[in-house]
């Protein structure tokens, strides 16, 4: 059994507030920002490794991004994936979710046969949740999004999908793509030994000389969407700390609730 995990390198959560729009030229300032593996993608990696431990599977991890995305792949190697591949080329830059999922799907085709693709439910920088389903569509395989539990038996997956207010239990034949939520598992920490081992592994680079994809399907040219403006939103103003004794504070809150018509029965 072969599992492919798609991971994305994103700015560290703590750093998200530091991502700013440069008011002069409208570009996004990312300098000096620490990067991590997208948190849900760590769950994707962990799930693949757990399946591997139970079912004699091999796990390949791919990431498309700038050269420093290699750090994310190295961490995946230290967690225990068998193989990591960096998909990087300046002509891939500027890809939107359509082009990204196209490039990733073409890379997966190059890998040969696979049974299961695991992605995160969404990436915390763009929060689009579009790349997983996009890859599945380009590969013509079924998808299960928002998976919080899977079992694999005889070429079938049984999964629980988290919907707004309940969980759906579904069965699907492999090959398939799933996107996972954080409830699915607790990602492992790599041991020091594995960290050191992973440092020495050479990570293959697949650029477009290798993948040979048509210009009009990759990068900015291959992207149906265009960002025309970015701006920093007005953040909520720091409000007031309500003074007084505990009863007065409660009164004040109720008064505000009334004033703003928040409760139909409290007018």
């Amino acid at each position: 059994m072969r599992i492919v995990v798609c991971i994305k390198q994103v700015p560290d959560t703590e750093e998200l507030t530091k991502v700013k729009v440069n008011p002069v030229d409208n570009t996004i300032v990312r300098e000096g920002i620490k990067n991590i593996i997208n948190p849900f993608d760590e769950n994707a990696l962990e799930e693949a490794l757990r399946i591997k431990e139970k079912n004699a599977a091999s796990v390949t991890c791919i990431s498309m991004g700038p050269p420093q995305a290699e750090d994310a792949l190295r961490k995946a190697l230290s967690m225990g994936v068998d193989e990591a591949i960096l998909i990087s080329d300046t002509c891939f830059a500027g890809s939107d979710t359509w082009a990204t999922s196209y490039i990733l799907s073409e890379a997966i085709k190059r890998l040969g046969d696979f049974d299961l693709i695991i992605a995160g439910k969404q990436a915390i920088d763009g929060d689009t949740a579009q790349v997983g389903p996009g890859i599945a569509e380009h590969l013509g395989i079924p998808q299960l999004t928002y998976v919080r539990k899977i079992e694999i038996k005889n070429g079938m997956i049984r999964a629980e999908r988290a919907l707004e207010d309940y969980f759906e239990v579904v069965e699907i034949k492999l090959p398939a793509l799933i996107t996972v939520t954080k409830e699915i598992n607790e990602p492992r920490y790599p041991s020091l030994r594995n960290l050191l081992k992973a440092k020495k592994i050479k990570i293959p680079l697949w650029d477009n000389r290798f993948l040979n994809l048509a210009q009009d399907k990759i990068g900015l040219d291959g992207s149906p969407t265009r960002v025309i403006r970015t701006f920093t939103p007005g953040l909520p103003k720091k409000g007031e700390i309500i003074q007084g004794d505990i009863k007065e504070k409660a009164d004040k809150i109720i008064e505000e609730i009334k004033k703003r018509n928040l409760l139909r029965w409290l007018q």
């Binding site: 979710t97 359509w98 389903p133 999908r161 149906p224 969407t225």
Partner: peptide, 23 residues
């Protein structure tokens, strides 16, 4: 942008090769 909308829309957009903006 519900769990259904976000499952269906990217699939449709990918098939039609058109732009989709999330959320």
């Amino acid at each position: 942008a519900t769990s259904m909308g976000r499952d269906l829309a990217p699939r449709v957009a990918a098939r039609l090769k058109t732009g989709l903006t999330a959320d």
